[in-house]
Amino acid sequence: MAVVLKSCEAMGTRFEALLIGDDAQHLDAVAVAVIEEIVRLGGVLSRFDPRSEIARVNREAVHAPARVDREVFGLLEKCEEARRLTAGYFDVTASLGAAARAPALRLDAEICAAQFTGPDVVIDLGGVGKGYALDRGREIMLRFGVTCGLLHGGASSVLAVGALPGKGGWLVAVRHPLTPDAAPVAQLELVDQGLSCSAVRRPGQRQSDVLNPLTGRPLDGDAACVTLAANATNAEIFSTALLAMGREEAKRYLERAPHHGLAAGWFEPGDGFTWI
């Protein structure tokens, strides 16, 4: 059995790809392809890189419809679908607090174009980009016959491919982001699943930089939300949305609109971890 680990910096964090298989040379080439894809997507999706597609859309979609490539357009459509499903709690245009009202982004599928409905709108894919990159990484692994591995971005988005040989799955320990030195609050076993963790605050951060899209105000409290889903994109979308909803609303949402394969856990320091 051969094991290959590759890493890169992308989307402001560190990604790692751990691949397991029989042929080390093949795994190495596949891991490089996975990492190159993640780096490429970082350059496409980051709003902070002025050369990215998203930065260009943010500059151009204010004045007129901006043509978007099909890859990015597909992701924006996915985000729009998630916005509708979550009644606006997932909103890629929420980052400046401008979205506390009607949809800020208009998509034209006929010409693959995006346009903002007002000034001060910015697309920020921070709540979905890492998961999307991991899913694309998995696609490459499977295309080249690698069926076992673990991918993560910044340890907050994780994608298990297959299961660790000889085990039931990939074991992932979850700590509360506010108490990173304490013992893990949960240990989860993932098989072909995405995991995402979103938290209101990081250690040392006084006010949340996550806005409630419906009010435009920063989230409060010390909660964190963990989601499991069939893929990393959905896991990340829903950890973002459910955290913004708050525990009770999130619980009602999951009862009302169950998504296939979606599970969510909730925890606050001193209050332990519970599935909702």
Binding site: D23, Q25, H26, D28, A29, V30, V32, A33, R143, F144, G145
Partner: peptide, 12 residues
């Protein structure tokens, strides 16, 4: 620092 080698989609 990589092999510059692309993966092949079939077994050796």
């Amino acid at each position: 620092n990589n092999s510059w080698r692309r993966p092949v989609p079939v077994l050796k």
